[in-house]
Nucleic acid binder design. Sequence first.
DNA 1: GAGGTTTTTGAAATCGCTTTCAGAAAATTA
DNA 2: TAATTTTCTGAAAGCGATTTCAAAAACCTC
Lengths: 398, 398
Amino acid sequence: MEHEQQCADRDPSAKQRLNQSQPSVCVTSGRSPCFAFKREYGIVDAHYETIDSLEALVWLSTMTGSKRITIHDIARKAGVSPSTVSRVLNSTTPVAEAKRQAVTTAIQQLDYRPNLIAQGLARGTSTIIGVLTQDIGSPFYGELLRGIEYGFRGSRYHPIFADGNWQQAEEYNALNILRSRQPEALIILGGLMPDAEMLAAAQEFPLIIIGRSVPSLEEYCVLVDNFQGAYRATQYLIEMGHQRIAHITGIRSHQDTLDRQAGYEQALRDANLPINPDLIVEGTFQEQSGLLAVETLLMRANPFTALFAANDQMAYGARLALYRRGIRVPEDVSLIGFDDLPSSAYTTPPLTTVRQPTFEMGMSAAKATLNLIDQRPWPLPQLTPDLVIRESTGFARR
Amino acid sequence: MEHEQQCADRDPSAKQRLNQSQPSVCVTSGRSPCFAFKREYGIVDAHYETIDSLEALVWLSTMTGSKRITIHDIARKAGVSPSTVSRVLNSTTPVAEAKRQAVTTAIQQLDYRPNLIAQGLARGTSTIIGVLTQDIGSPFYGELLRGIEYGFRGSRYHPIFADGNWQQAEEYNALNILRSRQPEALIILGGLMPDAEMLAAAQEFPLIIIGRSVPSLEEYCVLVDNFQGAYRATQYLIEMGHQRIAHITGIRSHQDTLDRQAGYEQALRDANLPINPDLIVEGTFQEQSGLLAVETLLMRANPFTALFAANDQMAYGARLALYRRGIRVPEDVSLIGFDDLPSSAYTTPPLTTVRQPTFEMGMSAAKATLNLIDQRPWPLPQLTPDLVIRESTGFARR
DNA sequence: GAGGTTTTTGAAATCGCTTTCAGAAAATTA
DNA sequence: TAATTTTCTGAAAGCGATTTCAAAAACCTC
C-alpha cells in the first residue's frame, strides 16, 4: 500500500483513478511496478474501462515485463513438468526430442531467462566471486580488476567488488558485505587485514590473495617479487653510474613498501654504497606525496642524481616537483618508478619503471580461483617484475 | 558423488578411508565441502575411528564452517520459531523482549548472517544494482565507479559490474549477464547500444544513464554538457590569443566526440575564426592516438599554436609527441584536455583541462537509482564542466 | 507377447528466508 | 471474572529453481 501511496503522490489524478476501482494495479507482483506503472499509465488508461481488473493486471505486466516468467510458465506452455524444463535447461538428463523442442521454443517465445537467485538457492551455489579491493579507481587496481574481469569471462562466475578504501574497519565491513552474498570464493587484493583474518577467511572460502604474501597461505598468493624489482631498479641506476640515489617509500604499514625499500638498500649494500637516511623519504603512494618528498629531499640539501619512487604515481609527483625547480630529467636526475601504469609510457619523458604484470596477475588470480572451486590444481604463474627502461633515466653526470 | 570422486582423486588414501564407511563426509551440505575437506582432513582423521558418522559430520562442518547456519538453527537455539527469528531480524513485527534477547544472543553466538540469496528469493528483491561499464580500468571510468561505489555505501544495495569493452556485442552480453542476476535497477555508462535498446531496458528496470543523453529518457541521464565544455576550452584558447587551434577528436561513433567537436567549432565560428579541417584529426580517446595525431598534424605542415584534445589521455599522448619534437608546452603550443583525470594535475606541465565531476556523477547516479527504486523523486544535479586552468596553456606567441 | 531393461518423466521435497493467517497469550475493559 | 481487544507467535505456504525417487514408457530379448 505504501507503494501505491507514493506512486500516486507523483500524479494526483492517477491516484483518483486508482482509488476508484483498481487499487491493486500498482501493487502487482514483481519488481518496482510503480516505476513501470508511472511510465505506462497513459497507455493502460486508454483501455481502462473496457477490461476487467485481472486482465488489466496481466496485460499491464506483459507490457511492462514486470511479471517475471518462471520455469512453470515454460512448463505449462510446453506441456511438460517443470522438472523436464530444468532438465533441458541444464542437460542433466536426456529428454525426448519432441519435448525438448517444445521446451526450447517456449523458452524462446517467452524470452525466458532462469532466475539466478532461485538457482543459487536450489543449487547452493551463488556463482559469485567476492573481490575485496582497496581502491577501485586507482590506475593500478583498475588494471587488476580488468584482469580479474577478463579471467572470469565465459565462466559462469561473476565477480562482485567491495572496497576497503585502505582502512581496516571498512575492509572488515566490505568482507562482511561480500560474505552475505554467499560468494563461492574470495579474491583479496592486498589490504591491511591481519594475517590471522586471512587464514580465517581461507577456512571459510577458497581464497586467492593478490599482492601480498600470507604465511602458510603462500600457495594461494599471486604476487610479484617486490624486493627483486626494487633491487633491479636500484642496480640499474648504479650501473648507470649513480651513487647518490634517493628513495621515496610507500606507506610504512604496507609490506610492499618494506620489501621495495629492502631491495633498494640491498642493491646499495651490494655495490658498497652507503645507505643514507637523508635520501629516504616516506610517501603515501600518491602523486602529491611524491611531489612533497622531492621538496623535502631538496630541502635537506643532500644532493642526489637519481631517484627511485616506490610507485609510478609518486614518480609522477616527483617529476613535477623537479620540473618546477628546473631540474631536468634525466639530464640532472634520473627517475625510476614501480608498477608501470598504462600512462607511464606517455609521461614526459616516458618513465623508466619496474613493470608489474598487473593485468596478468588479475587474470591468473581469476583462473586460479576457478580451479580452486572445481578442486583442480591451481597453478599460479611465476611472475617476475621487469625493468622497463624508457627515457627518464640516464647516465649520472660525472 | 562427483565431488567425492574428485576430492578423493587428490588423495588416494583418503579415498580408501572414505569408501570404508563414511562415504558421505565429503558430500555434506554447504559449499565446496571438498575444499575444506582437503585442508582439514588431517585433523578429522586423527579422531576418525572414535566418533560416529554423524558426529564426525557435524564436527567437521563446525571446524570448517562449511555447514552454513540458518535461521532454523537460531530458532532452535533460541527456542522460538523461525518466523520469530525473521521478525527480530527485520523488526517487522514486535517480539516479546525475552525472546528477542534469546534470538539476538543466539545470533551472536553462532555468528549468524542471513543468506542474502534466500532473502532475495523470498522477498523478490535482489538488492543488486547492475552497472554496465565500458572499460573498468580506465582512469575515467575508475573515478566513476568510485563514485557509484560510494553512493551505494550504507544502502542495502550493492552494485555489480559487467563490462562491454566498447563493443556492442559484448555490451549486449554484459547486459544479459546483469539481467540474469535480477538487478533491481540498472546504471548504464555510455556505451554503443542503440537508443531503442536503452528504452527497452528502461521498460524493464529503473534505469539511470551516465554520460549519454537518450531521447525521451533525458530525466534519467546524468551528464555534463560536452558542447559547452569544449566551447569554453576553445574560447579560452582564443582569449589567450590563439588563432590556429588544432583539435584531436575522439571516436566518431561516440556522441561525446561529436558534441565536443561541435563546441570547438562553434567557439571558432563565434570568434570569426575559420574551421580548418587540416587542423582536425580523429583519435581513439587513448594516449597513443594523441601522439599519432600530433605527428599527423605536424606532417600536414599547417602550423598551430594551440591544441585541444577531446580527452586527457589523448592530451598526454600529444604532449609526448610535442616533447619528442622539441616543441615546448606552453611556450610554443598550448595544450588543453578534457576530463581532468586525477593525474592531470601532475603532468609536466600540469594540464589545463575541462573538468568533469566524474566522482560526483557516479555518486549522484547511485543516489538517483536509490530514489528511483523507492519511488521517490530522483533529482539529478545540474553538472557543469569547469575549465581548470593549469600550466599547459599560455598566451599565443605573437 | 511375457518378462526384463533402460529411458524418460512428473510429483514432491528442498534450498533459507519471508509473510500471511489464525490461534494463543496478554492486556484491557466492563 | 467474563468479555473484548490487542499483541505475539508458530504453522504453513510461498519465492523459483534443482534433484531425488519412483512410476510410466519405450525398448529388448527370447
